[in-house]
C-alpha cells in the first residue's frame, strides 16, 4: 500500500475543497440571484470541465503554466520552481476541473430559496449578514454539502489532468489514481488491487455520507 500517495490524495482533496467551496458559495449565490445578460454563456463556461476531456484541460494547463509561458516564467521567478509537476500545480488544476461540481449544486440550492423569504427577512429588519447566516445558509446547506462531497470525491479519482500536469512524483504529485496505474505497469497486481479497493471504499463512504446528511437536512427543513 502506498501510504504516501493516499495521504497526498486526501490532502489534495481537502485543499481543493477548502479553496473551492467558499468561492463556489460566492459565485453560486451570485449566479442564483443575478439576471445579467450573458448569464447563460457564463454558466456554460463554468460547466465546461464537465464535458471537456481531461487531456484538453491538462494540455491547456501545461501550455499556460509550463516554463515556456509568460505565467510559468513569472511564477518560476517568484517561487524558484515551476508550477507544473508540483503539489501547488495539482491544486490549481484540481480547483479548475472541479468548478462545475462545486458551483452547480450550490447555485441550485440558493435558487430554490423562495424570494419571499428574503423579502420577509428584510422587512423584519434583519441585517444582510444575519439573513445569510440564519436563513440562506441553513436552507442552502444540503446543496453546499453536495458540492463539497462531489468535489472531494472527484478530486480523489481525477486521473487524466493529474497525469498530464503532475509527472507522478512520489509524495508530491503521485496520487492514488496514478499510483494504481504505476503499480499495474510494474506488474504488481496485488498492490494495485489493494489501492483500487481502498479508493472504491473511500468513494462509496463519502457519497453515502452525503446522501444521509442531505436526507436528514431535507427532512428537517421540509
Amino acid at each position: 500500500m502506498d501510504w504516501d500517495a493516499l495521504w497526498l490524495t486526501l490532502r489534495l482533496g481537502v485543499v481543493t475543497v477548502a479553496i473551492l467551496i467558499p468561492l463556489a458559495m460566492i459565485v453560486g449565490r451570485w449566479l442564483a440571484l443575478t439576471h445579467i445578460r450573458g448569464k447563460g454563456l457564463l454558466e456554460a463556461t463554468l460547466a465546461l470541465p464537465l464535458v471537456l476531456p481531461p487531456t484538453v484541460v491538462g494540455f491547456y494547463l501545461l501550455v499556460a503554466f509550463g516554463s515556456g509561458s509568460w505565467f510559468g516564467q513569472t511564477y518560476q521567478k517568484l517561487f524558484g520552481h515551476a508550477l507544473v509537476f508540483t503539489f501547488e500545480g495539482l491544486v490549481v488544476a484540481s480547483v479548475i476541473v472541479n468548478i462545475p461540481f462545486a458551483v452547480q449544486p450550490v447555485q441550485r440550492a440558493f435558487e430554490s430559496i423562495p424570494p419571499d423569504l428574503r423579502d420577509a427577512a428584510a422587512t423584519c429588519g434583519m441585517s444582510w449578514w444575519r439573513m445569510i447566516r440564519k436563513i440562506e445558509l441553513p436552507l442552502a446547506w444540503p446543496g453546499i454539502l453536495t458540492g463539497l462531497v462531489l468535489t472531494f470525491a472527484h478530486t480523489l479519482g481525477e486521473f487524466g489532468v493529474v497525469l498530464m500536469v503532475g509527472g507522478s512524483i512520489p509524495g508530491e504529485t503521485k496520487t492514488v489514481a496514478i499510483a494504481i496505474y504505476d503499480r499495474v505497469q510494474a506488474f504488481d497486481d496485488v498492490g494495485a488491487g489493494r489501492m483500487a479497493l481502498l479508493l472504491l471504499a473511500i468513494s462509496l463512504v463519502t457519497i453515502a455520507l452525503s446522501y444521509i446528511f442531505t436526507q436528514r437536512l431535507g427532512r428537517r427543513y421540509a
Binding site: 501545461l62 509550463g66 516554463s67 515556456g68 510559468g72 518560476q76 520552481h81 515551476a82 507544473v84 509537476f85 508540483t86 509527472g167 507522478s168 512524483i169 512520489p170 509524495g171 508530491e172 503521485k174 504505476d182 505497469q185 510494474a186
Partner: peptide, 20 residues
C-alpha cells in the same frame, strides 16, 4: 531516492516544461 518510471520521450518533454 524518489524513483519514477515512464517513457523516455515523456520525461524529456516534462524536463523541458520545467519538471523538478
Amino acid at each position: 531516492l524518489k524513483l519514477t518510471f515512464g517513457s523516455s520521450g515523456n520525461f524529456a518533454r516534462q524536463i523541458q516544461q520545467g519538471a523538478p
